[in-house]
Design a protein around this nucleic acid. Structure first.
Length: 261
DNA sequence: ATGGTAGAAGGTCTA
């Protein structure tokens, strides 16, 4: 079973690239971020016509996540619960969708960027991470295989960016952001790419500006975090750099895991 | 230090 995460940076602008990648890679599940579309305007019919099932959680202009699968998508949650597990503080920003596909609980996550920091956007990022951590704990208690996939907007280690000194003031690189990501690890979640490739760069994002792709000035911010039950099934995990090199590419490229299911 | 690019909009905002 192949599960991929792909920040597509606008589903309408990226539709030809998305359909092409789905057809070539044939994921069992694709977790999309930054669809930048309300649900009604998502190109659902075009994707369904290619044989896929689609579930979206969108908003106008910004953010937005989706799940695409060849299999049934069941028990869908849209949005993270509040810290206490209640639905009281429903997020006005569409950044989380979670569902069960072939017995695996899978979330597509678009974690807040948090820039500029310090400031209210950074505070929102950290508070959002606290809510994600609580939900990750709840999911562990189900003892299902869980895959938390998405654009975390966190650079885990210095090796995960081309130039640490260029990122020291950025929200993606702050010790607080990194510490909260490590909390998922302490809970028992496994960073799939680092399990398969313990050392060296594995960039997933290259800015459109300043020839970042051509110079390989990338960062690793798209992650698949596996619960112990999912980690036990891990066969492979890779960054697929090919889509980033195409015309009209997203600034992110897909990352995937293969589970023995 | 600044500005460089892209997407959704059809304003700027976000990244």
């Amino acid at each position: 079973m192949k599960i991929a995460t792909f920040n597509i940076n606008g589903v309408k602008a990226r539709l030809p690239r998305l359909l092409e990648w789905l057809d070539e890679f044939q994921p069992d599940v694709a977790c999309l971020q930054e669809i930048k579309s309300v649900d009604e305007n998502f190109p659902r019919l075009e994707i369904e016509a290619a044989g896929w099932k689609v579930e979206t959680h969108g908003q106008k202009s910004f953010n937005g996540v989706a799940l695409i699968s060849k299999h049934e998508i069941a028990d869908i949650r849209r949005g993270l619960p509040a810290l206490d597990g209640s639905e009281e503080t429903e997020d006005e920003q569409a950044r989380y969708i979670e569902a069960t596909i072939k017995g695996v609980r899978i979330a597509s996550i678009y974690l807040p960027n948090g820039n500029p920091q310090p400031g209210p956007k950074f505070d929102y990022k950290l508070a959002w991470m606290d809510r994600l951590i609580k939900q990750a704990e709840r999911l562990l208690a189900t003892e299902m295989p869980v895959v938390l996939a998405g654009d975390y907007n966190v650079i885990p280690e210095d090796v995960d960016c081309y130039s640490p000194s260029a990122w020291v003031d950025d929200a993606l690189f702050q010790p607080e952001s990194r510490a909260k990501l490590r909390t998922l690890t302490y809970l028992g979640y496994l960073d799939a790419i680092r399990q398969i490739k313990p050392a060296g760069p594995a960039f997933t994002f290259w800015d459109y500006q300043a020839g970042a792709w051509q110079k390989d000035n990338g960062i690793r911010i798209d992650h698949l975090m596996l619960s112990p039950q999912a980690a036990d099934l891990l066969k492979d995990a890779q960054v697929d750099r090919k889509p980033r090199g195409k015309e009209k590419a997203s600034d992110h490229t897909p990352v995937w895991v293969e589970l023995d299911i």
